[in-house]
Every structure is written in structure tokens, then in C-alpha cells.
């Protein structure tokens, strides 16, 4: 059976580490990185990339439009 699999790309330079995407994600894919970006924010990243289903919840709640979402059917 084909499985739907997602992936997100977070713009780590514009992310302000607000954590709203982490909380919005139904699959606990995201977390704030222990490193900080140029502005000093702990940026969001895919901590569990296998879990992403490409639902776009994270991107919809992101105030800074930092998240791009991809989704594909994997055989």
C-alpha cells in the first residue's frame, strides 16, 4: 500500500523559535534545535523526519512563513 510521507524545510535564518509549529504538529516531528541562528533564536527543525505526514499544520500557524511543506506517495 502506498504511504503518504511528508517533509518540511524550515528557513532557519528567519525562524524566531516561537515554538508554535512544534506544538501544532500532530506527529511530534518538529523540535527547537539546541543551536541558535544568526539572530540568537533556537530554530525549528525536523527532529523526527520519519514522522512527518505533510499536513501543513506547522506552516499554517507559523507567523513568519518560514516553513515549506512537501508531500509524496511512497510505494
Amino acid at each position: 500500500m502506498a504511504k503518504v510521507k511528508g517533509a518540511v524545510v524550515v528557513d532557519m535564518d528567519t525562524c524566531k523559535g516561537c515554538n508554535l509549529c512544534v506544538v501544532a504538529c500532530p506527529t511530534q516531528t518538529l523540535a527547537l534545535h539546541r543551536n541558535v541562528n544568526g539572530k540568537g533564536y533556537h530554530y525549528s527543525y525536523m527532529e523526527n523526519p520519519d514522522a512527518c505526514i505533510g499536513c501543513s499544520n506547522c506552516a499554517l500557524v507559523c507567523p513568519d512563513s518560514c516553513i515549506t511543506v512537501y508531500k509524496a506517495k511512497i510505494a
Binding site: 510521507k5 524545510v9 523526519p49 520519519d50 501543513s56 511543506v69 512537501y70 508531500k71 509524496a72
Partner: peptide
Amino acid sequence: EVAENIQNIIKPENLVYQKS
């Protein structure tokens, strides 16, 4: 392997949401 899978998904034809 995970990284490779992700690269297979992150392609223009699989785009579902981007900044307006």
C-alpha cells in the same frame, strides 16, 4: 537512509505549502 528519503520528497512536484 532517512536523509535520502527526505531528499526524494523535497522536490517541486511534491510541494504542498509555501510562503505566499
